[in-house]
């Protein structure tokens, strides 16, 4: 049974991963606005997930501006899916070992 992942358990990170799981990549500013957090807070979340190999961040010149695009890696996609499965198991009353 999948276990809860401490790296994506925080609400902002879980919602960040949820949004990234539904797209190929997303602009940093869009994620910041949707999560209603500051640039620095989102940067910290993204950096932690990048360090874990769950997220990839790339800078690109887009529409005349330098923008950052964030995407889930295959490992991040799996970690998110496993975490959601673990949450469902908790909801269903199953024990999640930790």
């Amino acid at each position: 049974m999948p276990a809860l992942d401490p790296l994506i358990h925080a609400p902002a990170r879980l919602q960040l991963c949820a949004m990234l799981a539904s797209v190929d990549d997303a602009q940093f500013s869009l994620l910041r606005d949707r999560l209603a957090v500051s640039d620095s807070v989102l940067s910290k979340h993204v950096a932690a997930l990048v360090d874990a190999g769950y997220v990839r961040a790339r800078k690109a010149l887009f529409d005349g501006r330098r923008t950052t695009w964030v995407s889930l890696t295959p490992a991040g996609r799996k970690a998110y899916a496993d975490h959601v499965a673990a949450l469902r198991a908790v909801i269903d009353g199953a024990s999640v070992g930790h």
Partner: peptide, 9 residues
């Protein structure tokens, strides 16, 4: 937590 994530999605 799951509801918030799915809502964001």
């Amino acid at each position: 937590a799951l509801h918030a994530a799915e809502h964001a999605q």
